[in-house]
């Protein structure tokens, strides 16, 4: 099993890839040599004491000497992270969590909503994929993913077809895939889950998000409601779970 560590990493590059969406590349052979697709890192957004927790971000892609993160600026932590400059030294703990179950030699279909597709490149680079479906509100929110077949759908029709990701899910695409990766807002993931017929559901893996304290399993703050009652820790038992693990109703009630 790979082991996580807390490292001071040098920022190699930082750029805005879409309005409000930043790509930051860190130098870290320690993390990139053991990271698996779907794992995340915990980033210290500032050198001081506040904010009191780190920010979890999925590894989007491995690079020559480290890894790249893609994140949306939504609040104080990500605002600070958007100001990282090349040469900055930032404390990053990782790789953390259980990523996509890529043990077998399988063909993947990837379905991402909004920033949920941040993280897909690493999976595409690691497996055989039959297609990537990316949904976004508009053209300026379409996360770039390099793959052989990318289907894009936007709510306002400004890029690709107009509509929601669920409209692009066809029996043909599902049948060709041995594994299906889903990541996006809870409502989107639930809609995708409900659209996928029973027969294909056992192939589905979902990547979840939860408010985290630690990120390494000690605080019990990140628990996600699971089918049949109880909770699982997003940070160590996830963030990727088999689709049928999640209790969508209770998870939506959390209002995250």
């Amino acid at each position: 099993m790979q082991t996580a560590g807390d490292y001071v990493c040098t920022v190699l590059s930082s750029r805005q890839v879409l309005p409000g969406v930043f790509s930051v590349e860190f130098e870290s052979p320690e993390i990139s040599s053991v990271a698996l697709p779907g794992q995340f890192v915990q980033v210290e957004p500032s050198p001081g004491v506040f904010p009191v927790t780190r920010r979890p971000v999925t590894i989007n892609r491995l690079t020559e000497s480290g890894f790249e993160l893609l994140f949306d600026v939504v609040g104080r932590g990500t605002q600070l992270m958007a100001r990282f400059l090349p040469g900055d030294m930032v404390r990053v703990m990782g790789p953390l969590g259980k990523g996509w179950d890529v043990d077998q030699d399988k063909t993947w279909l990837l379905i991402g909503g909004g920033l949920g597709a941040a993280g897909f490149q690493f999976l595409v680079d690691s497996v055989r994929s039959s297609g990537v479906i990316i949904g976004a509100s508009g053209a300026d929110r379409v996360i770039p993913v390099q793959a052989q077949t990318v289907h894009i759908v936007t709510e306002d029709g400004s890029r690709g077809s107009r509509g929601l990701v669920t409209a692009l899910i066809s029996e043909e695409l599902l049948a060709r895939a041995d594994s299906i990766a889903v990541c996006g807002p809870v409502a989107m993931m639930e809609a995708v889950w409900n659209t996928i017929p029973e027969a294909h559901r056992s192939k589905v893996q979902v990547s979840t998000e939860s408010r985290m304290g630690c990120g390494w399993g000690v605080c019990d703050g990140c628990s996600i409601p699971v089918s049949g009652g109880g909770y699982r820790k997003c940070c160590v038992e996830g963030p990727v779970f088999p689709g049928d693990t999640i209790d969508w109703k209770r998870w939506k009630e959390a209002g995250l």
């Binding site: 009191v52 927790t53 304290g213 628990s223 409601p225 998870w251 959390a254 209002g255 995250l256």
Partner: peptide
């Protein structure tokens, strides 16, 4: 005890609320 329903943590401007 399975614990409280999420969200169990809420970061505030200068601290952390927990309801584990």
């Amino acid at each position: 005890r399975s614990g409280n329903p999420p969200p169990r943590l809420l970061e505030t401007p200068f601290g952390l609320l927990n309801s584990i």
